[in-house]
Amino acid sequence: MGLEGLSGFGLDTPGGLGGAVIRVTNLNADGPGSLRAALEEKRPRIIVFEVGGVIDLRRKNLSIKAPFVTIAGQTAPSPGITLIRGGISIRTHDVRIQHIRVRPGDAGQPPRSGWEPDGISVSGAGAYNVHIDHCSVSWAVDENISVSGPRTLGPEHTARKVTISNSIIAEALDYASHRKGRHSKGLLVHDFAREVAVIGNLFAHNARRNPYFKANTIGVVANNLIYNPDSAAIQLGYIEDEWREADFSPENPRVSVVGNLLYYGRDTYSDLALVAYQGDAFLENNRVYNLDDGLMNIVQGNIRKLDRKPSWLEGLTPRDPEALVEYLVNHAGARPKDRDPVDRRIIESFIARQGRIIDSQKQVGGYPKSEPSYRPLTVPEDVGAWLEKLARDIE
């Protein structure tokens, strides 16, 4: 979904444009020429890839702590960049991540052992103006993607102004190494996170949180396709007990929910609605289809319907749901014109109305493997236009 001309919710961040161009030249977990070394630089930077393949993080997540950075996965040669056995933690502002795959998996850890990586997390007071676009995130043990911070300290202490767009968010692991047990979760917007937009994504085979907006949150959920959740699609609400000793009182999340589709799968509860539990929602042009393609309820629980959008991106005109399926099938994920076997399988599972919620990546073929590929880059003076062209070539 093209987001050109839109502003707000982190979309207008420059990322690393205007900064140094840093080249990733190998697939090592760390050291000179690695993605980790590029992220640890302090200066504004555009990270480009002269190598393609799989980066095994060996259970040590990547962390982005210095601001003004663009991770330009579209610059990598085929098959692109895939991270395994770890995720990415964003703790700073003005970050754009594009065209990469993040697949943490259980890393061979026993059930309930405490290995609990997110795929991509945006967290803390310093995390704002963040855009995650055309990524493929699957097999996380906690959330595939999360936007969070300290629960009870107020909005200025929590991540904000974040957009997640055009991505495949799928197959969060259920009974895996999370200490709580079953925990297949798609995308969490934690208490007090504000101006969070979830636009034009495919959610597939995540039991819950597709996405989940908690207390005091404000955001937009538009033009997402949700397939085969278990007990919850778009969740609104919070847990009262978490606020007993807080200085703030919990208030309903306030979310604009427009142009979304929910399709039941084999794991989906037989009467599941699109939006559930407790919250304030503006609802427009959403649809829910059961296994027989019959229309189902849009809401259940204590959902207060709003007459006006509580938040919206300036310039956003959502697609009609009738056109959404074809668009996302052809354009969602890290490299839609150069999909890896995992993304192809997930797309095909939706088309065939197959697939299940999984407990381990081993159930669907295990971690990807590929030989490294290399391509030297000549970076032109107009880096922004060059990155846009490379992105269009694989979108």
Results as ranks from 00 to 15, higher is better:
Gly80Cys: 12
Gly108Arg: 11
Asp133Ile: 00
Val147Tyr: 00
Pro111Lys: 15
Ala125Thr: 00
Asn144Glu: 08
Gly186Asn: 01
Asp106Phe: 07
Ile120Phe: 04
His131Val: 00
Ser146Leu: 03
Ile120Glu: 15
Val102Arg: 01
Ile88Gly: 03
Asn166Leu: 11
Arg160Gly: 02
Glu195Thr: 05
Ile100Ala: 13
Gly105Asn: 10
Asp133Ala: 13
Trp115Glu: 01
Arg151Pro: 04
Ala140Cys: 09
Asn144Arg: 13
Glu195Leu: 08
Phe192Gln: 05
Glu143Lys: 05
Leu153Thr: 05
Val189Thr: 10
Trp115Gln: 04
Pro117Trp: 14
Arg179Leu: 10
Ala193Met: 08
Ala127Ile: 01
Asp106Ile: 09
Ser138Tyr: 14
Ser165Glu: 14
Val141Lys: 03
Ile164Leu: 15
Ala159Lys: 01
Pro110Ser: 15
Ala176Lys: 02
Gly87Ser: 11
Lys185Cys: 03
Tyr175Ser: 05
Gly119Asn: 07
Gly186Thr: 09
Thr152Cys: 10
Cys135Gly: 10
Gly126Thr: 05
Glu143Arg: 07
Val102Lys: 00
Ala159Cys: 08
Asp191Thr: 07
Pro111His: 15
Arg112Glu: 08
Ser148Arg: 11
Asn166Gln: 13
Glu171Met: 08
Lys185His: 11
Pro111Val: 08
Gln109Ser: 09
Val196Trp: 09
Ala125Trp: 00
Asp133Cys: 04
Gly105Ser: 12
Gly181Thr: 09
Gly80Thr: 11
Ser136Asn: 11
Asn144Met: 06
Gly124Lys: 04
Ala176Cys: 09
His190Phe: 08
Asn201Tyr: 09
Pro155Gln: 03
Arg101Asp: 03
Trp115Ala: 06
Gln109Asn: 08
Thr158Arg: 00
Arg160His: 13
Pro155Phe: 01
Val162Cys: 01
Gly181Asn: 12
Ile132Gln: 02
Pro117Thr: 12
Val162Glu: 00
Gly181Met: 12
Asp142Ser: 06
Thr152Gly: 07
His157Val: 04
Ile164Trp: 14
Cys135Glu: 14
Glu195Gln: 11
